[in-house]
Simulated assay, not measured.
Amino acid sequence: MEIPGGDDLIGELLRPLRLTGVFDSRWHVNAPWAIEGDAESSCAVLHYIVEGGCWITGEGHQPLQLRAGDLAFFPTGIAHRLSDRPDRQGLPLRAVLPRRTPGTSGEIRIEGTGARSRLLCAGLHYDASAATGLYRALPWVLVLDGSQVSREPLLGDTLALLAATDRPTAPGDRLITLRAFEMALVLAMRPLLRELSSSPAALPVLGHPGISKAMVIIATRFAEPWTVESLAREAGMSRSAFTAAFRSLVGEAPARHLTGRRMQEAVRLLGETSLPQSSVPERVGYRSAVGFHLAFRKWFGKTPGEYRTTCTAGLAGS
């Protein structure tokens, strides 16, 4: 089934989240074992099975079995359990890894008498402003099996390097690790989202031509003077029907989604470019500098100037 605007919409979901830090750990476990992970705020979670296998269990979901070479990605860091058997209750992750500070690494060893497994696990902390309603609407877990990973050689090589127990350390390693996980995330999302695009039931917005078209417009033409009425016209719908369908499928109102996309671009321009601050409002769809300033402060709790100063200080200290 071909989904109108599907490729463009999937392309927007492939925009890398702005990772702000990574805590990664290598697990060496022998059955019996089970680890209960808490829900993570503004944090995606990645599990790569290096050797052996495990089960993933989440409340209200059927258990999933993973084998060596498989990769599981939790877009919104929902609470879940990893174990050698789906019905086994385990230790809280905070009990075995009490400190999971971004920028550091850890290790878990469980010396059982049963089958051995090795895993690479990572908490990918991201800028919450980049997580749109569409991103938050992704399934609780996305899985690439070993054959899919093998068809993405760069992804496999990156995961193998990150999973290595003798991974080299040197000046700049923290930044390199962050960027490597960021690349692994994007490389993993590409085939995962391609698969979703052929299954509208998994992400219903992809099956709605009017809302999909509006989503692509917001993603790519956010600097234009859109209103809910003009977006509804583009979608070929009445304002009320458009607003209701958008909220139902995307998880937030169209005006908020548009503001979120503009703010996402604003922080990119302020944090990653030398564009004069006075030029940012027009670049992101605001005709008034005052209006942009107020919207930015309401969204982030700080002014554009304060945000840029914080980014500059962070770069200087990295």
Rank of each mutant, 00 (worst) to 15 (best):
M1D: 10
E2M: 07
D8C: 04
R15C: 04
P16L: 00
R18S: 09
V29Q: 08
W33V: 04
W33P: 06
A34R: 10
V45E: 05
H47M: 09
H47D: 09
G53H: 05
T57P: 07
Q62M: 13
Q62Y: 06
A68Q: 14
A68P: 02
G69E: 02
D70P: 09
L71M: 13
T76S: 15
T76K: 10
G77S: 11
I78C: 13
L82W: 09
Q89W: 10
L93H: 12
V96I: 15
V96W: 12
L97H: 10
R99Q: 14
R100E: 13
T101I: 12
T104K: 10
T104R: 10
I110S: 07
I110A: 08
G112A: 00
G112L: 00
T113Y: 06
G114E: 04
A115P: 00
R116A: 08
R116K: 07
S117C: 09
S117E: 11
H125V: 10
D127T: 04
D127K: 05
A128F: 02
T132I: 05
L134I: 06
R136C: 08
R136Q: 12
G146K: 10
G146S: 15
S147Y: 02
L155K: 15
T158I: 13
L161N: 14
A163I: 13
A163K: 13
P171Y: 01
R174W: 03
L175F: 14
I176D: 15
F181P: 07
F181A: 07
M183E: 14
V186G: 15
L187A: 14
A188F: 00
M189N: 13
M189I: 09
P191V: 02
P191T: 00
L196Y: 01
L196E: 03
A201K: 05
A202R: 11
V205F: 08
L206E: 13
G210V: 05
S212C: 10
S212V: 01
A219I: 01
A219C: 04
T220P: 00
W226Q: 02
E229S: 06
L231P: 04
A232H: 01
R233F: 01
E234F: 00
S238I: 00
R239N: 06
S240F: 06
V250P: 01
E252T: 12
R261H: 08
M263G: 02
E265T: 03
A266F: 09
V267A: 11
G271Y: 01
T273M: 11
S279H: 14
V280K: 14
P281D: 06
P281C: 11
V284A: 08
V290E: 12
G291H: 14
F292N: 10
F292S: 11
H293C: 04
F296A: 14
K298Q: 15
K298C: 09
K298D: 13
W299V: 09
W299Q: 15
F300C: 03
G301H: 14
G301W: 12
P304N: 13
E306P: 03
R308I: 02
R308P: 05
T310W: 12
T312E: 05
G317R: 15
S318I: 02
